[in-house]
Design a protein around this nucleic acid. Structure first.
Length: 572
RNA sequence: GGCGUUAUAGCUCAGUUGGUUAGAGCGAACGACUCAUAAUCGUUAGGUCGGUGGUUCAAGUCCACCUAACGCCA
């Protein structure tokens, strides 16, 4: 038994995430958390919504709501959808929480005290009419490059040219349309990551077991060009965590907030504090996960994220933790994913392209999505979602191989022996061979799961299901029943025990279906198998069961075609 | 324009440090079985590994160039 801290990259608040976002962090993190819990480990699995920054403000404005209210509502929506997918967070927090405010300010203060923060004067556009600075997307004007009159301060959407707000011709406020603008000096804080470069480099070198994808991205940022660059960690916005030096005011920083990328990863820690508060626990209960001086020294910490998040998790956030000079728990293993593409292109939140989490749950139960996404997780390279592949995989794996196994064995038993585990005969050579095979397969499955090889785990699990069908096919109790009903009873007994085994082993991937099978079998003990010889005898003769409803209805050609059409365009 | 990633059977993907006949699942064909969601089990057929040229006794696996797709940056 070990202690595992697991975090998933925190999804941004402005709307519902698509399946590419889901498979890139939350879903594999959930798989790992469920597996470790099933193996009896103590797990703290945390996730939250990332609520600060310009896009949140703009989305709120578009929805006609105060940003705080908008975020609160969207948090509830995302939380509900996470539940719908069976994401088993111990806590789903919010980066706007009081805990994160306090911690972020605390870290900034510690970093400043240690000399890791410098002040920089910059020129920014200020709107007199709005009484505020206009960063990036808050300013519009005519593109100096192509003449498009709705170019944004950071980029022209027409010619895609990256812009500086001061480049725009006839600039105006995107908030009020006012052209009463001026360029003002404004001061900002920069995190001096560059002076921690060697420490970060050494730290990453010590992580020899990290995926190549992860270390290569980190190394690139560390060594390319001028090397690791200092990052601005403040912004002239209203929505965010006010810049304070610990609990003190920060002269010259009045009215400014921390940049979203500074406070978002700190929420991983704050989320544990939120968890403690929500459960009426003392601070020591969350600190034992995060402070190596308060019990976290034996914690194994694993982060899950898409590849776009790697630099922040390998460099910026560690720089924050190291720079604080305090004994915070650092990540031990970092599992990053590539992108999932949709029918030849990218999933896109801004363009509304692809399948979004709420829509997915409207058309099919979570287990279908969990299975396909995990068994096709973009681990080594980008991977591709197509409706045809989805339909075929799900029908074959879930309906035909697993679902039908449970169906055939329970129905066969009911028709020949009744709805109770039959008595008679005993396991023989065929059964010994099966158990021996399954023991090897189980070991491979466990190894793959422990190493977070998601696709491989799915393939091993599927092979275990298929081995069950192979067994039934070869011993053919329906034939033997005519000549040796006792031995047929033993085979059927084993078949029913196999169904329970499959349910237990599948629970990290398919929590809902797993539970359905166990309920139908009246199986109360769901503990992970230790020794298959004894495990496969635990449903004893006379143990009553029910034939479950169809576990996985097949996706019909009509449905696949219908959905393919429905999701071919752009979401409203 | 710079940097980076990817390019393996019809489809989705595996292929450790270069080494005998390149693997899996799906799909296809054929066969077996009939308990089951027309499910299952078995067999077979399909790639010379994007292209060209190198290094090597030996390359899908290293190098160069080219092509294509994607991504990041400018």
């Amino acid at each position: 038994m070990a202690r595992h801290l697991i975090t998933s990259a925190i999804p941004y608040i402005n709307g519902i995430k698509h399946l590419g976002n889901l498979v890139g962090s939350q879903l594999p993190a959930d798989l790992y958390a469920r597996y470790l819990r099933a193996r009896g480990h103590e797990v703290m699995f945390l996730c939250a919504t990332d609520e600060h920054g310009t896009p949140a403000e703009l989305a709120a404005a578009k929805a006609g709501k105060p940003v705080a209210e908008y975020c609160a509502e969207m948090h509830e929506v995302q939380s509900g959808i996470a539940d719908g997918f069976g994401l088993s967070f111990d806590h789903f927090g919010r980066s706007s929480s009081p805990q994160n405010h306090a911690l972020t300010q605390h870290f900034a203060g510690r970093l400043a005290d240690a000399g890791h923060i410098r002040e920089v004067s910059e020129k920014q556009v200020y709107s007199n009419a709005d009484g505020r600075f206009l960063p990036d997307r808050y300013i519009e004007g005519t593109c100096p490059n192509c003449g498009y009159d709705k170019a944004r301060g950071d980029q022209c959407e027409n010619c895609t040219k990256q812009l500086d707000p001061t480049d725009l011709i006839e600039p105006r406020s995107a908030v009020s349309g006012s052209t009463d603008l001026e360029v003002r000096e404004t001061k900002h804080l920069y995190l001096r990551q560059s002076q921690m470069k060697d420490q970060l480099d050494a730290w990453i070198d010590s992580k020899s077991d990290w995926p190549v994808l992860t270390t290569s991205i980190a190394k690139k940022w560390l060594h390319d060009g001028d090397g690791l660059r200092d990052r601005g960690i403040t912004r002239d916005l209203n929505w965010g965590i006010p810049v304070r030096r610990g609990k003190e005011d920060w002269p010259g920083m009045e009215g400014k907030v921390f940049y979203v990328w500074f406070d978002a990863p700190i929420e991983y820690i704050a989320c544990a504090a939120e968890w403690a508060e929500a459960n009426g626990r003392p601070d020591a209960d969350w600190e034992r996960w995060w402070r190596t001086d308060k019990g976290a020294d034996d914690v194994r910490y694993t982060q899950f994220m898409g590849k776009d998040n790697v630099p922040f998790h390998t460099l910026s956030f560690p720089a924050t933790l190291i720079g604080s000079g305090e004994p915070w728990k650092m990540v031990d293993h970092l599992k990053s994913f590539n992108y999932l593409n949709y029918d030849g292109g990218q999933f896109s939140t801004s363009q509304g392209r692809g399948i979004f989490m709420d829509q997915a749950l409207e058309i099919l139960p979570a287990d279908y999505w969990r299975w396909w996404l995990l068994s096709h997780a973009p681990e080594s390279s980008d991977s591709e979602f197509t409706w045809e592949n989805f339909q075929q995989s799900v029908n074959k794996d879930l309906a035909d191989v697993l679902g039908n196994f449970v169906s055939r064995i329970t129905k066969f038993c009911r028709s020949r022996f009744g709805e109770a585990v039959p008595q008679g005969g005993d396991y023989g050579a065929d059964e010994a061979a099966l158990i021996s095979d399954l023991t090897d397969m189980l070991a491979r499955y466990e190894t793959a799961m422990e190493q977070m090889e998601v696709r491989k785990s799915a393939a091993e699990l599927r092979a275990i299901w298929a081995r069950g069908n192979e067994y039934l096919q070869s011993v053919a109790p329906w034939t033997l029943f005519k000549t040796d009903p006792g031995q047929a009873a033993a085979q059927t007994r084993l078949g029913l025990n196999l169904a329970r085994l499959f349910a237990v082993l599948s629970s990290p991937f398919l929590p809902t279906a797993s539970e359905k099978i166990l309920t139908a079998l009246n199986a109360t003990d769901t503990s992970w198998p230790d020794d298959l010889n004894s495990f496969l005898r635990e449903l004893e003769p006379g143990h009553g069961f029910d034939v479950p409803d169809v576990l996985f209805a097949k996706i019909t050609d009509e449905q696949a075609e219908d959905w393919s059409t429905r999701f071919s365009g752009v979401r409203d």
